[in-house]
Design a protein around this nucleic acid. Structure first.
Length: 289
DNA sequence: AGGCAGGTGGCCA
DNA sequence: TGGCCACCTGCC
């Protein structure tokens, strides 16, 4: 392996180890693993293979990549949102009047939402229906190995939708996709036949983008919101999954509310950055709930 | 050993 | 609208 030199991220991101783990491997992204022997994280986004290490004293994160040049470091700084005003976004959340939210935020200082390539974010979350993170990671790994470009020895990027469209449903099922294979295949065919569709979604405002996504088979409210939040950083998106249902029921007293109602509550109560609040609540619930 | 998991879509009232 | 169910697969 030819690794480039270690460099600090542009904005000196310094999460706690727990916040770093939650950001990389808490269900936003599915291609990171911690290498125990070397005490570092290794992951893939787009066609970039990279490693992350953290200063044990000040928590600052350094990054290097496989045969990386300047443009790869730029891509990494984009991926980690180094130009996003995280402090302002934190401050915009209603933690002053919401003690539970404040507790969640205090438990995960400097938590981030990654700015993942949209196409692969949609693909990963189409795999996520009724699956836990380890299973979703297996599906993504299989998709990459079988259909994606090799970006380093024995290391593959997730396939493009065009590459997914090359496969048939039967071969997709062999990748452990199960009943998701049929819809993933159909969606791949639609995207392959409509090359500017994903760009339209990225460029559109939240409501319009979501409407476009909901037309894809296998994409409902939850997956659409995850793809938009984690793949386009449209922070209004408030994915309602089983963890959020739990926390809103137990901590906010919203028993027996429909998912649509919960989603509306989220956007009203937490505001324009509701998606970031969701990530704090979600992380806390998984770790301590 | 059987139920259930970061859901969705179809069908019924 | 609201409730119920099938759907792959692997893990507890």
């Amino acid at each position: 392996m030819k690794w480039s030199t270690w460099k600090l991220l542009d904005d000196n991101w310094a999460p706690t180890p727990r916040s770093l783990q939650e950001t990389l491997d808490g269900g936003q992204a599915f291609r990171w693993k911690f290498l125990e022997d070397e005490n570092l994280w290794q992951g893939i986004f787009g066609s970039h293979l990279c490693q992350l290490k953290q200063d044990s004293v000040n928590n600052k994160v350094s990054i290097r990549g496989y045969q990386w040049k300047a443009k790869d470091y730029n891509a990494a700084n984009q991926y980690f949102g180094c130009k996003i005003p995280w402090t302002q976004i934190d401050d915009s959340l209603p933690w002053r009047s919401d003690a539970h939210l404040k507790a969640c935020m205090d438990s995960f200082p400097e938590l981030r939402i990654l700015r993942q390539p949209f196409a692969e974010t949609l693909l990963a979350f189409m795999c996520s229906a009724t699956k836990r993170i380890p299973q979703i990671k297996v599906m993504c790994q299989n998709l990459a190995t079988e259909l994606g470009n090799e970006i380093a020895p024995n290391t593959h990027a997730l396939p493009t939708w065009e590459q997914v469209a090359q496969a048939d449903e039967t071969s997709l099922r062999k990748l452990a996709l199960g009943f998701r294979a049929k819809n993933i295949k159909k969606t791949a065919d639609i995207i392959a036949a409509t090359p500017d569709l994903l760009q339209q979604v990225e460029d559109a405002p939240y409501d319009e983008a979501k409407e476009l996504l909901l037309q894809l088979p296998g994409v409902g409210e939850k997956i659409a919101d995850c793809a938009l939040l984690f793949g386009t950083t449209k922070q209004e998106a408030f994915p309602v999954d089983t963890w959020v249902i739990k926390v809103l029921s137990r901590r906010y007293g919203l028993d027996a509310w429909s998912n649509t109602q919960l989603s509306a509550f989220g956007r009203i109560h937490f505001g324009k950055n509701a998606g970031f609040a969701q990530q704090y609540l979600f992380s806390w619930e998984r770790a301590f709930g």
